[in-house]
C-alpha cells in the first residue's frame, strides 16, 4: 500500500493530507499555516490561521480580524496525524520555515528565506529533514549579495550627495521587511527619516513588538521639506514617481532590491540609484541552506526553478520543480515577496 506524501502540491497551495492543512494557500481553505506576512503568502479568507507569535501582529494589521492561533519557534504541535513546528527563516521578522513530520518522515517548506543575519529577523536556522521545499528567487550564480556595510556606505553617500545638490533622496522599499532593513542600515549621521504612511504603520507594528529602529516621522499633507532639511524619504515602490512625490520638489530616487544586482533591471526601474539589499538568499545562501538540511529530495519553487533544479541534480541531489500551476502567483520585482 502506498501512503500519501507528507506534503503535496495543489492548486490551492501546499497541502498536508495527514494533518488536513495548507501552507501559504492562495485560495480560501479551512486551516492555513503561514510562513510570513508578505502578500504572496498571506491571503485573506481562510477559516483559521496558524503562524509564529512574532508574525502575528503584522498578520492582524494586514488581514484584519482573522481566527489566528500563534506558536513559538521550535515548539512542536500535533495537527491530525502530523507533527508541526515553525523555525526561523531569517526573511523578515516573524518569518518561518514549517517542518512537518508524519510517521518519522520529515519535510520542510522553507517559505522565503535568507541566510545572512539582518539584525532584525530571527536568524535563519537550518532544519534537518528528508525533503526540503526551497524557493529559488535568486537561484542563479550571478546573484551574490555585497557586504551589507558596503551597501550602508553607498546609501549614506547617496544621501549626502543628494542633500549637497539640494535634492531630496527618496528610497523605494517594501513596507514589511525591506523598509526596516534599510532603517537599520542608516547610521546616526543621517538626517531626519521621513516615511510614507504604509511604511510608518508597519514599522510601528514592529516597534511595538520590541524591534529597535531609528526614529521616523510620517509624511502628512502638512509635511514641508523645509522643516526637514537633509531628510531621506522612505516610500513603497508604488509611490515612487506618483503624485505623492511632488511635495518634495526635486528628488533623487533609489530602489532597494536584490534585482538591482542586474544592470538591466536597475535601468528598467528608471530610478536614479539601485541598492542591492535583499531579504532572499543569494546563490551561495541557497546552496548552503540546502546542504545544511541534509535533505535528499529537494523541490524547487518560485524563481529560476528549472536551472536551479538541474544544478542541484548535478550535485547529486534528487531535485524536482514544483509545477507552475501549483506555485500560486509569483510576484514581480515591483511587488513584495
Amino acid at each position: 500500500m502506498t501512503r500519501d506524501p507528507v506534503l503535496t502540491f495543489t492548486d490551492r497551495g501546499i497541502y498536508c493530507p495527514a494533518g488536513d492543512f495548507f501552507i501559504d494557500p492562495w485560495r480560501p481553505v479551512k486551516r492555513a499555516l503561514l510562513t510570513h506576512g508578505h502578500a504572496d503568502h498571506a491571503h485573506p479568507g481562510h477559516a483559521s490561521y496558524l503562524a509564529t507569535r512574532s508574525a502575528a501582529p503584522v498578520l492582524r494589521h494586514r488581514l484584519g480580524k482573522i481566527r489566528l492561533q500563534t506558536v513559538a519557534y521550535e515548539q512542536t504541535q500535533r495537527i491530525g496525524d502530523a507533527t508541526v513546528s515553525f523555525h526561523p527563516a531569517g526573511h523578515v521578522p516573524g518569518s518561518a520555515q514549517i517542518r512537518v513530520e508524519v510517521d518519522g518522515e520529515c519535510w520542510v517548506a522553507s517559505g522565503d528565506y535568507k541566510t545572512i543575519e539582518d539584525g532584525l529577523s530571527e536568524p535563519f536556522s537550518p532544519v534537518p529533514c528528508h525533503v526540503f521545499i526551497t524557493e529559488s528567487t535568486f537561484g542563479l550564480p550571478v546573484f551574490r549579495w555585497p557586504a551589507q556595510d558596503a551597501v550602508a556606505r553607498e546609501l549614506l553617500d547617496w544621501w549626502r550627495n543628494s542633500v549637497d545638490r539640494g535634492v531630496t533622496p527618496v528610497l523605494g522599499a517594501y513596507s514589511l521587511g525591506k523598509a526596516q532593513r534599510v532603517l537599520s542600515l542608516l547610521t546616526e549621521d543621517i538626517g531626519p527619516i521621513l516615511t510614507h504612511g504604509a511604511i510608518e504603520a508597519t514599522t510601528q507594528v514592529l516597534r511595538d513588538q520590541g524591534l529597535r529602529l531609528p526614529p521616523t516621522a510620517q509624511v502628512t499633507p502638512d509635511t514641508k521639506t523645509k522643516d526637514h532639511l537633509g531628510a531621506i524619504v522612505l516610500a513603497p515602490p508604488g509611490a515612487l514617481g506618483g503624485a505623492w512625490m511632488r511635495r518634495f520638489g526635486p528628488v533623487s530616487t533609489g530602489f532597494a532590491s536584490g534585482w538591482m544586482q542586474m544592470r538591466g533591471v536597475r535601468r528598467r526601474r528608471a530610478a536614479d540609484r539601485g541598492f542591492v539589499i535583499s531579504d532572499h538568499a543569494d546563490w551561495d545562501g541557497l546552496n548552503q541552506a540546502i546542504a545544511a538540511t541534509g535533505a535528499e529530495k529537494i523541490y524547487v519553487t518560485h524563481g529560476y526553478t528549472d536551472i536551479f533544479a538541474r544544478w542541484l541534480r548535478e550535485g547529486g541531489l534528487d531535485a524536482d520543480v514544483v509545477p507552475t500551476e501549483y506555485e500560486g502567483e509569483t510576484l514581480q520585482d515591483s511587488e513584495e515577496s
Binding site: L140, P141, V142, Q261, M262, R263, R310, W311
Partner: peptide, 24 residues
C-alpha cells in the same frame, strides 16, 4: 567553478555576457 551550461543559462537572464562574467 561553475559548469558551462549554467553560465550559458545565466547569460540570457542578465542579457549581457560582459556583465554575466563580471558577476559570476
Amino acid at each position: 567553478g561553475l559548469p558551462l551550461w549554467l553560465v550559458e543559462e545565466a547569460y540570457p537572464v542578465v542579457g549581457d555576457l560582459a556583465e554575466t562574467i563580471a558577476l559570476i
